[in-house]
Amino acid sequence: MADKITKVGKGVLRRSVARFLGRREFLFSPLVALYGGLFLLPISIIFKMSYEGGLAGFERITSSLVFSRVVENTIAISMTTTALSVVLGYFLAALLWKSRGTKRLLIFGFVLLPFWTSVLIKNFAWIFMLQDNGVINTALMSVGLIDSPLQLMHNRFAVIVGTVHYMLPYAVFPIYASMLTIDTRLDRAARSLGARGWSTFWHITLPLTRPGIYAASLLVLIISSSFYVTPVILGGPRQMMVANLVYYYTNTLIDFASGAALSIIILAAASVLIVVYVSLPKEGQNG
């Protein structure tokens, strides 16, 4: 009787394993395990480091005057970058959507060029443009619009210019992807019923591209809030962002507990943004 039960159990196990191996999801399991391990292992190490000595690391972070200043910089820069990137990205995505042939390829090239270029190269190019004897100040002084160079470097303006330049492709493509799902006959139908261009955009195009706007806003906001190189090169100490503060705690003060605690705070804030994005309505999203 026991042998029969064992044989039946082995048969059920073999059939279950064969059924699992025959599923398409099994092909993705090594990839899921790899990426899951690469994500969860560092996160678990950071969690462990942040709680060394209890909540002392969190207390040092939240009680610091530098932390409040850095949070203010991060929110202001990332929110402004998100707004400008989404607005400019929407216009570029619409231009791509309406263009055809060679014109579309050229626009794609101009959009992708910053995407393929190193962030260091882009930042040093903006130094060449924004410095006191740079292209912009030289051109303005040569035509008599200003008498002395404008202070365009080492301030929040320069940081926002650099971050918007970097983040623009991340805003264009989600919006452009949502525009590709729109049936062009809707525009013709609205115009045949007497709707003008602005009315058609407001009541048809904008609601149908709202999922792309949400995705672009989330992507740009999360990435721009973790910028490190651009605030250092184009900004300065007064424009320090959260990533710069993490570096300061871990490499200057050698306070890994506080640096890990700050990283956990950043991760929690990003998780809240993702939850908010998931809860947003997805009007116009097909499938």
Rank of each mutant, 00 (worst) to 15 (best):
T6P: 02
G9I: 08
L130D: 03
T181G: 14
L31K: 11
T181Y: 12
Y170V: 12
G194I: 09
A83F: 14
L221G: 05
T200S: 15
L105A: 14
S44Q: 11
S99F: 08
V278D: 05
P237T: 05
D187N: 10
I213C: 10
G235F: 01
P169D: 12
W198L: 15
H165N: 13
F58L: 00
W97Q: 06
R19Q: 13
T102Y: 09
Y247L: 11
L206S: 13
S258E: 00
T205P: 07
G57Y: 00
G134L: 02
I61E: 01
H165I: 04
I77G: 03
A257H: 01
N133E: 10
V232A: 02
S44W: 06
R191W: 08
S64L: 03
H154E: 07
L27E: 09
F26M: 14
P114V: 04
Q239V: 00
D3E: 14
S217T: 14
A94M: 13
V8D: 14
A177Q: 11
T209R: 07
I43H: 05
T62M: 11
I160E: 02
K98S: 15
L152Y: 11
F39S: 12
F20C: 07
T74E: 09
A33I: 11
G37P: 06
L219A: 10
P42H: 06
L262Q: 00
A94S: 13
A215G: 14
I46W: 01
S224F: 05
F157C: 03
G11L: 12
S178Q: 07
V275T: 02
L65V: 10
S78A: 06
N123S: 15
G37Q: 06
G284T: 01
L273P: 00
I204Q: 15
N155T: 03
V119N: 14
A268M: 05
A257I: 00
S29C: 11
L13S: 13
A76M: 12
A83Y: 08
I182M: 08
Y277H: 01
S85V: 09
K48V: 04
K48F: 11
L113N: 03
L152W: 05
V143A: 05
I223V: 14
V275P: 00
T205K: 12
L31C: 10
G134M: 02
S148L: 05
G144P: 02
T62W: 06
A158L: 01
S118C: 02
M49C: 07
R14T: 15
I43Y: 12
T74F: 08
F115V: 04
D255P: 06
S271L: 06
G101L: 09
A139L: 10
R60E: 00
S29V: 12
L206P: 07
Q151M: 05
F39Y: 11
V111I: 15
F20A: 13
S225F: 10
F108M: 14
Y214N: 12
L193Q: 14
E25M: 04
L84P: 04
G162I: 02
V246A: 03
N251I: 09
H165S: 12
V70T: 12
S16Y: 09
A76V: 10
L34Q: 07
A257L: 03
L150D: 04
L219W: 07
L13A: 15
T102P: 07
